[in-house]
Nucleic acid binder design. Structure first.
Lengths: 140, 140
DNA sequence: TCTTGCACCTCTAGTCGCTAGAGGATGTAG
DNA sequence: CTACATCCTCTAGCGACTAGAGGTGCAAGA
């Protein structure tokens, strides 16, 4: 039983030290046992859990979604329908975000291309922002 | 001189009422004159400014970037190099975000496709999250 | 004229997911 | 034993709002 300090846990999981404490504070990670001097002592399972959380966060899952995914993981005999639903919802979000960013990219390109590097009163960047009618963004 | 109330300004610009007050509080919008009963009375120019801000926000520009763009707009004899630089930086950000979201989409699709809708212990969604080694995301 | 009811006012606090800093205790290497 | 990194708790801050409390102004219908 070697004790894993919070710094070690952070290094192994890729989650920062204050973030590990934060996850514990919001109940995403069980409070670990403490050393005599009141320092946290993690188990290998905690590292896995932190890695799981980090990966899910990198994929853009919200904390509450991760909380659900973790309770599913804790009880492997459940149906995975919830996990599937969460991932699908996230996929829809991501697809929507991509579509809107691609539209945005086109609009920014028009702005930047149109800029003749002259004075502001001829600048297309300012102009497009001021006059929404020229906007190619499909949000209306 | 018809007076434009904050509600009217909000409707015309598409910015919500509390957000208009917020923009005033952070100095993005000049404090408008007040009616006898202390209610804000906006000018048409304020509506344009709010519309400009809203559009820039929709394009993902940060408040500080918008502050710069607005000072440029206020003095049309300046060079538009700053506006151009801001738009270009934003374009780079957007392109990067699109690339990472596309990679993410692929990973989510793999997860969702792999899910056999059985129990959690066979669920690929959970599995991929737990075991980062299976991850196709190119962030390492 | 009165009253209803919406829109307005200010102020504070909450959201999300951390991050930074103060001020102190612990653990380890030389 | 001393230096120094690492740990502890606690509070406050970030961006860009949003929500709510508790109160005032104003216009229209009875």
């Amino acid at each position: 039983m070697k004790k894993i300090t919070i710094g070690e846990a952070a290094r192994r999981s890729g989650v920062k030290v204050p973030t590990v404490r934060y996850y514990e504070s919001i109940g995403l990670l069980a409070a670990p046992s403490r050393s005599e001097g009141n320092q946290r002592s993690f188990e290998p399972a905690d590292i896995s859990r932190l890695t799981f959380i980090r990966h899910a966060r990198e994929l853009g899952f919200e904390i509450e979604a991760i909380r659900t995914l973790l309770t599913l993981q804790d009880d492997p005999h459940q149906s995975c329908a919830s996990a599937d639903a969460i991932a699908k919802a996230r996929l829809v979000e991501v697809e929507q975000r991509i579509r809107s960013l691609v539209a945005l990219k086109a609009e920014l390109e028009t702005m930047v291309e149109g800029c003749g590097h002259g004075r502001v009163d001829q600048c297309r960047v300012i102009e497009v922002l001021a006059d929404h009618g020229q906007c190619t963004h499909p949000h209306h």
